[in-house]
């Protein structure tokens, strides 16, 4: 089967994830949208791996998963800390870093 449908699906998921990041204000949901974008990229990697007939793309997807796991752990810890001090998980509330 051609790779193009997979890539288009990947692009759609990525775009939806990006819009989600931009419109949602709950930090945890924003995080989920980021994960969606990462997964969309992974799909592209795996597709290209098949396209080219070697495993490098799968390796890249693997590394993305590792990094995503680490990122989620730290990111959620940060959200927890912010929530503990400000009783809010909204990304708009954490807007002190400005002029």
């Amino acid at each position: 089967m051609s790779a193009t449908p997979f890539l288009i699906l990947s692009a759609l998921l990525f775009g939806v994830g990006a819009v989600g990041v931009l419109v949602r204000r709950n930090a945890i949901v924003v995080f989920m949208c980021v994960e969606l974008m990462l997964n969309a990229a992974n799909l592209a990697f795996v597709t290209f791996s098949r396209q080219h007939g070697n495993f490098d793309g799968q390796i890249a997807a693997f590394f993305v998963m590792v990094v995503a796991a680490a990122e989620v752990v730290v990111g959620l810890a940060i959200i927890m800390t912010i929530f503990r001090t400000r009783r809010s998980a909204s990304v708009d509330d954490a807007s002190l870093l400005k002029y």
Binding site: V21, L22, R25, V91, A94, S95, L96, L97, K98, Y99
Partner: peptide, 14 residues
């Protein structure tokens, strides 16, 4: 120029 810095992460992401 620094007035552009609103502090809203989502604006930056946009």
């Amino acid at each position: 120029v620094r007035r552009w810095q609103s502090g809203f992460v989502r604006s930056y992401a946009l």
